[in-house]
Amino acid sequence: MRVGGTNCDAETKRAFDELGVHAEVAHVNELVKRGRLLEYHALVFPGGFSYGDYVRAGAIWAKWILAKMGKELKVFVDENRPILGICNGLQVLVEAGLLPGFEGVSPYPEASLATNVPPGYNCRWVYLKHENNGKCVFTSKIPKGKVLRVPVAHSEGRFIFAKEKEKRLLERLYENDQLVFRYCKKNGEYAEGHYPANPNGSFHDIAGICNPEGTIFGLMPHPERAFYWWQQPDWTRQRQMPQCGDGKLIFEGLINHLEKEK
């Protein structure tokens, strides 16, 4: 799905095309006009600057969808159809109350993606450690503890909870197996908030989370930019060219899940 300001839709669609899945880039206006949301098995909120990210990143798109197609979206969520949010997409899912979604869709954002620390837009490759025990349908095929390499590019990616609740909410993320990716170093040690391994100062190095059902998943990094080997920053150094980038695993995970569901 896209709106004015979405700009990572083409490469995201390309990832699905490459894996032999039919994906459409649909403008929100079109979905609303024809009420077509439920024709799809899965929904992706790609990266970009929806509506210029005015107010707060993702805020306008989130409210817009809830207002214009809240009903269909609720059905979509209740039927556990998978939803993926990348970068701006994660910001939307959080603003819309779909993530972390401790008690299902929340009427207000339970977390926030605050401005980076250190401040400013930051485009770099980072390492992610897979933390999920199998709940997240997008990563269930990825072994726990595996380190993935994917780029980030954002200025508002610092995942935080309300200070007074953060301890408790973090525990709940673990209890529900909602933690999916944490920023780490090349060797897999957690970034522990240290820049640049943790590129934005995220609480507990959180890079991606899913809802308690594991069907809604959002992450700040861009798997669609780590799909091919030639997208990697140092491929010119490697004697043996890798088959693909780590980002591919996430799209494959989604497709595996959809096949199971059929």
Binding site: A10, G120, A153
Partner: peptide, 21 residues
Amino acid sequence: VIRSYDHEVKGNTTLKPLQGE
């Protein structure tokens, strides 16, 4: 400066402005 520009979007930048680690 370079990192404050998105040089990866569209996923087609095969040789980036900054090289290696």
